Simulated scan of single mutants.
Amino acid sequence: MKQYLLGASIAFAFAGAQAADIVETAKSAGSFNTLITAVQAAGLTDTLKGPGPFTVFAPTDDAFAAIPKDKLDALLKDKAALTKILTYHVVPGKVMDADVKPGKVKTVEGSPLSVSMKGGKVEVDNANVVKTDVVADNGVIHVIDKVVMPK
């Protein structure tokens, strides 16, 4: 009987360990708190929890910290500008690292991101991709070291 209960507990634990959506995956990483705050302020949470798939080039908290505090605070209060910037970090579809090719990639915002390879490393506009293929159930996150701005 004890063996059965232990087996059932393990099976239950694995059943509960399903992949999370983009928002939940970013939250659990712990290094995207400012991004999550910005997504919520822009009203994009439900979209990024939606079916997707999405590829998100996600700036870390350190990337957001490079923006002067007064400018970041003002941006968080300007929903239209914030939405424009955040959707510039999102590409429709699920693009894994192995599928990334240099060139222009159309974003959800509408403007193209410039993807390049330098020394075997991927850059998006002027940001370095520092971690790739953080898989969510509705897409993938690639971690970048800067907040990129639409032209």
Rank of each mutant, 00 (worst) to 15 (best):
F57W: 10
D21N: 12
A63C: 08
A74W: 15
F57Q: 04
A29R: 07
I36F: 01
G52Y: 01
A66R: 10
T83M: 14
S28T: 14
G30M: 04
D73R: 00
K79F: 13
Y88Q: 02
G52L: 00
V90F: 10
D21Y: 03
A29T: 09
V90N: 05
A41V: 01
F32Y: 06
A81D: 06
K71N: 15
D70F: 06
K79T: 15
N33K: 03
L82H: 08
G30Q: 08
T45N: 07
T34I: 12
S31M: 12
K69P: 09
A19T: 09
T87W: 08
V39N: 00
T60R: 03
A19Q: 12
K84P: 02
P92Y: 03
T25N: 09
A58N: 09
A38I: 07
I22P: 02
L86Q: 02
S31T: 11
S31N: 15
K77C: 12
A20P: 01
P68A: 09
T37K: 07
T87V: 12
K27I: 15
T87D: 04
T87H: 07
G93V: 11
D70N: 13
Y88A: 02
Q40A: 13
V39F: 01
T25Y: 07
S28H: 12
A81P: 04
L35C: 09
A19G: 10
K69Q: 15
K49L: 07
S28N: 15
D73V: 06
G50L: 08
